[in-house]
Amino acid sequence: MPDIEDDNQDQNNQVALKIGLIGDSQIGKTSLMVKYVEGSFDEDYIQTLGVNFMDKKIQIRNTTITFSIWDLGGQKEFINMLPLVSNDAVAILFMFDLTRKSTLNSIKEWYRQARGFNKTAIPFLVGTKYDQFIDLSFQDQLEITQQAKKFGSAMKAPVVFCSTSHSINVQKIFKIILSKAFDLKLNLDEITNVGEPILIFK
């Protein structure tokens, strides 16, 4: 269940959506979160020691929607905090680095564990570092894209390739989350071709 802010404001106009970011280390979970919330991107890597969280409020008509984004440190030692991130989440972004196939392979385990805690969260498969992905050989791009699509359909999850540093498909992830959470139709077209920043959510 989403935790609802207990401000003395009109409660009906406030909705909080908890979103968990999960995946191997150094794939850009924190970067994505910071980018979305603050609009900034920092090339430096700062390891997440535990769980980070940030809030972002957006306004739709007269309703304030608060994305409460929780980002779990990707190192193995923090996996014990997984329930903190996945419990009560409305959506869980299973993230991987588009340039490292091993991080996509890990998704299986992340999915099993996170879903063990929360079966109602809407799963997303998010490939990061799309800007580096395009430098790979076509063969690699093809292989990774196909595998991601297969994973996406196995998980029944939207698939998004994004680039935090180049602002590609970052905002759209959250738009899709919103559309899924409230069963709204999103005015956005899919991108399905190999080599392009995949956006599959319908």
């Binding site: 609009g39 306004q59 602002s167 498909n169 970052v170 905002q171 919103l178």
Partner: peptide
């Protein structure tokens, strides 16, 4: 492909998105 200003901190979702 960039969303440019779309991810600006101040940006908000618009009605037309949905």
């Amino acid at each position: 492909y960039s969303e440019d200003l779309d991810t600006d901190v101040t940006s908000e979702f618009t009605d037309n998105d949905f």
